[in-house]
Design a protein around this nucleic acid. Structure first.
Lengths: 329, 329
DNA sequence: AGCGTCTGTGTTATCGTCAACATGGAATCG
DNA sequence: CGATTCCATGTTGACGATAACACAGACGCT
């Protein structure tokens, strides 16, 4: 019962070589005779040998593990990022440990925990611009931050929020709306700021003064609240919400005020969550490519860990998806 | 720059004791003189000592790491479970590694990966009843499965799906509806089967023959598809959908058929996702307590790992949340 | 007084792997 | 043809922590 696990020594004994040779086979060293390699490999297969991560980590100082830091996993965007990162990590042989920020939103504590875990690097989903900016980044930890301003201390991967927002706004203007109102995300959010910037740029490009923004906290409830104020203003015919869930709230309050989309108002969201196509009406929105984002973040992180690559800056495009919540004015 | 990490030996030297004594302090052994303990602790604090997980794992065979297995993390339920489990694990000093099933849905491969990682135990989010049933469970891995039939080989923690479904159905019957139609989840899902069972039981209890069920795949799109068929049948006045997203689809197609809830039809969902209160109309649904579920699963798992506790079976209640999508007939 | 027991601490060996160095032979060179 | 290089492999000794054992002194018992 107490079958001790198979170690390198067992494989070495069966193959009639030294442990070091087994190690070389395992690590794909070129310095191994093909015949020897075959012998060792068959011995490994026969015994069902698996390298012992902890032992290797102890010896090499590398754990083949990366951390993912997020304030919460309960949002659609974060969980889709997580999924993408998890898949990408698995395919490269890295384990992924998840660290969520406590209620204190204490990034330093999160880095501390990662340090404890001995991760080789970390990906941070940066929901508040100053999250990472203020925390001193541990020197010995490779870092890639998602949705952050460019920074030379760590890699950065971002969705083109501003570009997506511009496309959304221009789409609405193109439909003949005199202006476009905006329900923005929380002030601390980098993504929210970028989306707002894109919206302003599009309006400025059309020579239109930007109206006051309403501000929500990404939840549908906050979108509904903001929408209630907009709905009573008959001059509002087009609303760009900074995410789909707030758009959902906007759709609801406009409908309840007797001004349903798309006849009385056009609404655009951001993200393209799975449900967006089944909102009423189906929501025109900007699709974020979470898979590409996660994949790229991991790729950069692994490059930093394994090849000491310099921090890079990558922008992933976002694409407008037109559905039924927008119509010509 | 290349500051080697602080090891136990460094602490021991500074405190003027042996490494073993430091180890005893770290592990809260009672066999340490309070004065000595204080000396060691101050030395640890001064040097900023952190135990080296890999070294400890190598020696003890315990990694203080658990795995979470899920087919996907992109669903609301799974990501909320993940969040709950991550928090609970962190508070107990366990790291959490996430393993998603490949497209092959190959549980054996997932266990394999966990084995590689050397986790002490795993929590499986069981979306298909036969997921775990068929896989041979590794003997040396403590296991807790969420949403599975009772099993003596591993711990099981489940939401009371049937009870919640019964409450939902009885709520609708209590409003005067002659019968309740059901949009069920995928056939392989344990949760879907249980919710369907609860629905049937409630109808049977009222002496009503259960109508045919429509079947979706948890997505809003599949709910819309099922809803389209139901909406043309004027005798349908009450629908219980097996999750909120399908309920969203049902709401949409009924509205588009000129039969909006709650006047023409009453709709109940399951889960209480964050957006449900902002569906149009706000959705009456059954709230799952994901936090309790995750917390309990982790508690049982840790008990199994640390105290070799016997597999337990826990049921977490679900609660009806009445909103505006249901009305008297 | 003599003996066992308990307490706090130190010593030694080991977990599985890999880096650094060592070795012996074949191939290549001037 | 001796010297040099290269190649495939082996030997040794950590990495950091802890389990098992050892031991000296304090204490209590008969």
């Amino acid at each position: 019962m107490a079958a001790r696990r198979v170690s390198m020594a067992d494989v070495a004994a069966l193959a009639g070589v030294s442990g070091q040779t087994v190690s070389r086979v395992v690590n794909d060293s070129p310095r191994v005779d093909p015949a020897t390699r075959a012998k060792v490999e068959s011995a490994m297969a026969r015994l069902g040998y698996r390298p012992h991560r902890a032992a290797r980590a102890l010896r090499t100082g590398r754990t083949q593990t990366i951390g993912l830091v997020a304030s919460t996993l309960a949002t659609v965007g974060n969980s889709r990022m997580l999924q993408a990162v998890a898949d990408a990590a698995a395919s490269r042989g890295y384990a992924l440990v998840v660290v969520t920020l406590g209620h204190g939103s204490d990034v330093a504590a999160a880095f501390d925990r990662l340090h404890d875990q001995g991760v080789d690097g970390a990906i941070v989903l940066n929901e508040a611009t100053d999250l990472v900016r203020d925390a001193e980044t541990p020197a010995d930890l490779a870092l890639v931050v998602v949705d952050s301003p460019r920074d030379e201390r760590f890699g950065v991967v971002v969705t083109d929020h501003a570009g997506g927002a511009r496309a959304a706004t221009e789409h609405l203007l193109g439909l003949g709306h005199a202006t476009v109102h905006h329900v923005a995300g929380p002030p601390a959010s980098f993504a929210a700021a970028e989306r707002e910037r894109g919206w302003r740029e599009a309006l400025a490009g059309a020579g239109i003064d930007a109206p006051d923004v309403a501000r929500g906290d990404w939840t549908a409830a906050s979108g509904a609240f903001a929408g209630a104020a907009l709905a009573v203003d008959r001059s509002v015919t087009a609303v760009f919400a900074a995410n789909d869930q707030m758009a959902l709230g906007v759709l609801r309050t406009f409908a309840e005020s007797g001004r349903p989309a798309p006849d009385a108002v056009s609404v655009v969201g951001f993200d393209d969550v799975a449900d967006a196509a089944d909102y009423r009406p189906p929501l025109t929105t900007v699709r974020q490519d979470f898979d590409a984002l996660g994949e790229r973040a991991l790729e950069r992180l692994v490059a930093a860990i394994e090849d000491a690559a310099e921090p890079a800056y990558d922008v992933i495009p976002a694409r407008l998806v037109v559905r039924a919540s927008t119509a010509p004015r």
